[in-house]
Design a protein around this nucleic acid. Structure first.
Length: 484
RNA sequence: GGCGGCGUACCCAAGUGGCUAAGGGAGAGGUCUGCAAAACCUUUAUGCGCCGGUUCAAAUCCGGCCGCCGCCUCCA
């Protein structure tokens, strides 16, 4: 398995610290507002990595934190006339609601910063003792000049950064790049007792403390969005390695951004869509598949058009499943094999190998999904060639089970066609029940038996008007929700 | 200004030294169908931003140029 490491800017063979075990720490969210689709991407990317590592036979311990104390949370609480912990609680709940919809599994450990104040104080004290940090009037700063590796992750030189450093540099810092480990609290702000007086932790220290506690001083994979490389992850490395004297994380993994008109989606630019907004218009599975259709390190341009395309793909998948089910439910006739069967057999037999090759190469979900498309096409080709008999059924079921096995790792395609269409009726706000549709299909069938094509077509058009498509197959008429 | 990344067909997108450059969407034509829809078939890059170079061999490596983006401040 090869994983791209931001530390070396290259793909490396993956070798965990401990044989057969992988420790992953991914930076989660600051719970001060609803998540946007950029947060969804990060969560889904690491969710899939963790699932695939597990599939590959590793025992995985996945840690993802919540930052539940920070300036933005305090600001939000003041705006809403509530307390910081109420804000954190509310948006942690919203986070779970969104992520559950998107099929993001809970992490094994989901630590909160405020539950680890003691561990943070321990590290900060140690850093002061070792001469890596200094206290000025109750604020404690990390002294970057003391840590020789500073800049190794983000590949920047101290001199270059000096040139870029700006905006209200705290005069008390020895170097403008020094960052806060502990911030003294002003009157009325939330605070915790510490050797340096009441205050709260700086942003970066929580990840050093929580990863150390739950994964040890050296662990395998540390990740997050690419915007965390500097300063957040750079600072984590400095703190942790200065404190322990050991290598912090082995592989640094960063996902790319979501863009709107080529620009990074972000709160400050205001060009973002919340997960909830998108889920009002599309099925959650559409968003998940869309985000996995591009390699995790590349930027993804976000648009309605591309989501519709993804929706059409999912529809194709569920339509194919419906065809397979239909075929298997009635086709027990004379054994008949076709040439297409050989192709399908071959493709099915090699499918998992190709899936694994794709995923082993830095989690190439885009390629993996491409392989799924190909197999779907081959399945349809086979059904079109009119095979028959138990052997044909078995082959189709085997092909479908391969797709499902791969899809399980991505956690997509896990519903029945019917569930998909019922869900789609809801998101598309089709003003009909299943019963209404079945009723019309029955009336249409009667009209067709009388060869009253005008009436049959009128019924079909009426349904189409409301967003439902009818498809006549040799045996029966099936319905789908119109896509596009 | 410093550092990093990207540029593959009408659109999305995989591919980072070697068989005919995956796959999907859209378009065109066809098979099937009462008509449709779906599915399938055919078709759409002698070509991978541009110019040089290395190599028996490059979209893939090196250099230069052009364009776009990101980080350097909170940010997934």
């Amino acid at each position: 398995m090869r994983i791209y490491n931001t530390l070396t800017n290259s793909k490396e063979d993956f070798k965990p610290v401990e044989e057969g075990f992988v420790g992953i720490y991914a930076c989660g969210v600051t719970v001060y507002d609803n998540c946007h689709v950029g947060h969804a991407r990060s969560a889904i990317v690491f969710d899939v990595m963790r699932r695939y590592l597990r599939y590959a036979g590793y025992k995985v311990k996945y840690v993802r934190n919540f930052t539940d104390i920070d300036d933005k949370i305090i600001k939000r609480a003041n705006e809403d006339g509530t307390t910081w912990d109420e804000v954190a609680r509310r948006y942690t709940g919203e986070y779970y609601r969104d992520m559950d919809m998107l099929g993001v599994e809970r992490a094994d450990i989901e630590p909160r910063a405020t539950d680890h104040i003691h561990e943070m104080i321990e590290i900060i004290s140690g850093l002061i003792e070792k001469g890596y940090a200094y206290n000025v009037d109750g604020d404690v700063f990390f002294e970057v000049d003391k840590f020789s590796g500073y800049g190794k992750l983000s590949k920047r030189d101290m001199k270059d950064m000096m040139a870029g450093a700006r905006v209200d540099v705290d005069e008390r810092k020895k170097n403008p790049m020094d960052f806060a480990l502990w911030k003294s609290s002003k009157e009325g702000e939330p605070s915790w007792e510490s050797p340096w007086g009441p205050g709260r932790p700086g942003w970066h220290i929580e990840c050093s403390a929580m990863s150390r506690k739950h994964l040890g001083e050296t662990f395998d994979i540390h990740g997050g969005g690419a915007d965390l490389i500097f300063p957040h992850h750079e600072n984590e490395i400095a703190q942790s390695e200065a404190y322990t004297g050991k290598e912090f994380a082995r592989y640094w993994v960063h996902n790319g951004f979501i863009t709107i008109d080529k620009e990074k989606m972000s709160k400050s630019l205001g060009n973002f869509f919340t997960i909830k907004e998108i889920l009002g218009k599309f099925d959650p599975e559409v968003l998940r598949v869309f985000l996995l259709s591009t390699h995790y390190r590349s930027p993804i341009e976000f648009s309605d058009a591309i989501l519709k395309e993804t929706e059409a793909f999912l529809d194709r998948y569920y339509s194919t499943v419906m065809r397979i089910e239909d075929f298997c439910s009635k086709n027990a006739g004379e054994r008949k094999q076709t040439d297409a069967g050989e192709n399908l057999e071959h493709m099915t037999g090699s499918f998992m190998k190709r899936f694994e090759e794709a995923m082993n190469d830095d989690f190439n979900t885009a390629l993996a999904i491409g392989h799924i498309y190909e197999l779907i096409k081959e399945i349809n080709r086979y059904i079109d060639s009119s095979p028959a008999g138990e052997g044909a059924k078995k082959l189709l079921q085997e092909s479908l089970s391969m797709i499902k096995k791969a899809a399980d790792v991505l956690n997509v395609f896990n519903r029945s066609p019917k569930e998909w269409y019922v869900a789609l009726m809801k998101t598309r706000q089709v003003p009909l029940s299943e019963g209404d549709i079945e009723d019309r299909i029955k009336r249409r069938r009667e009209a067709r038996e009388r060869k009253n094509w005008a009436e049959a077509d009128a019924l079909r058009d009426e349904l189409l008007e409301m967003g439902v498509i009818l498809e006549d197959t040799p045996g029966k008429t099936v319905w789908k929700v119109k896509i596009g």
